[in-house]
Design a protein around this nucleic acid. Structure first.
Lengths: 181, 181
DNA sequence: GCAAAAGTGTTAAGTTTACACCCATGT
DNA sequence: ACATGGGTGTAAACTTAACACTTTTGC
């Protein structure tokens, strides 16, 4: 739309399709191969959003004929045109980002267990992580607030819940903590 | 141009303005604020290129009224519209990239000394590096071929020259060597 | 009491940092 | 012989990787 900032378009679409608001949004890239669409010369600017799938009822809000659904990264379907490439580029960018910014929280409810967070990291990076090492590392980042609350409704030991502490993050970190030449 | 891939446009412009070909090119992002240009709604896709400034005669090739010049990062001029933001985004992206891919070579002649390479890293990252540590690190990456050649035409000890070894790079590296969770 | 997941420490290997002098060359 | 920049090693601090058992809870 003509009177819309570039980044407002994906937000509008998410709102219309799935009633999603307040999502974390990141631009991936512009895709501009000549024949990426058969119909007309089209340039697409791709964005990814991070959404906790359990906080939203996707399909019930969808507008008209378009269908929105959740997929596991493992068995995501093949998409038309160059959309697989766009998804791959998004995932690559997300993997990179995950390594230098605490971003996993965006995919979880406000309060979450360390195991849930580890699951997010493992799903995005596509690897298994040692839970002791993961916990040490995440806690050393000092961006989590440990709550006096526990998980509920599970039939095993209840995990302690944590919250992302934006204040700690701002003050503490020097960010960009890798490949320190 | 309508029959041009997105990434061909910057290449064409570099060719026309400065007779540059075969440059390393990387897309930065699409910039789409509503009022970024006063004249009309405009969306710009930014690219950065890495060019060895000593291998090219910029100004002598410039087409018509546009002027192309080299600037030091330190004293780069203020640009109109949101172009400063684009330059900053490019530099940020380059800094990041420099940390996980051997890219400094693109700014140097085919054969270069380790000191020249270190200068590139220092200029891009905006920090001073310890030369012993830098050398150890770069050599451990195992992407450089040590030549039996030395610098020429300097009035002090001649540096040994190195070449980037694309073959080594492909085979050796697992890339992405940071923040190893 | 058993199944299921949460939580917890230590050690060895590897990486990063800090640091200062001698070497080769041209004038 | 001196000025200029090239080239080199080591030790301490820190980070990462590998590893297995006990605790809590619901049924």
């Amino acid at each position: 739309m003509k009177d819309e900032r570039l980044s407002e378009a994906p937000l509008r679409i998410l709102k219309d399709m799935a009633n999603l608001t307040n999502v974390y949004l990141e631009q991936v890239a512009a895709f501009g191969e000549i024949d990426r669409f058969p119909h007309a010369r089209t340039i697409t600017v791709g964005y990814y959003a991070l959404v906790n799938p359990f906080q939203f009822e996707l399909c019930s809000f969808k507008s008209e004929a378009l269908e929105a659904r959740w997929f596991d990264l493992q068995d995501k379907p093949l998409l038309p045109y160059d959309h697989n490439e766009i998804v791959e580029a998004s995932l690559d960018k997300l993997k990179l980002k995950l390594r230098y910014e605490p971003i996993g929280f965006e995919l979880l409810p406000d309060k979450f267990s360390l195991r849930q967070l580890q699951d997010i990291y493992e799903a995005i990076l596509g690897v298994e992580l040692d839970n002791r090492n993961f916990r040490k590392k995440i806690l050393k980042m000092d961006v989590l607030k440990k709550l006096n609350e526990k998980q509920d409704g599970v039939n095993h030991r209840k995990a302690i819940l944590y919250q992302f502490d934006a204040e700690k993050y701002r003050t503490s970190s020097e960010q960009t903590a890798f490949f320190t030449l």
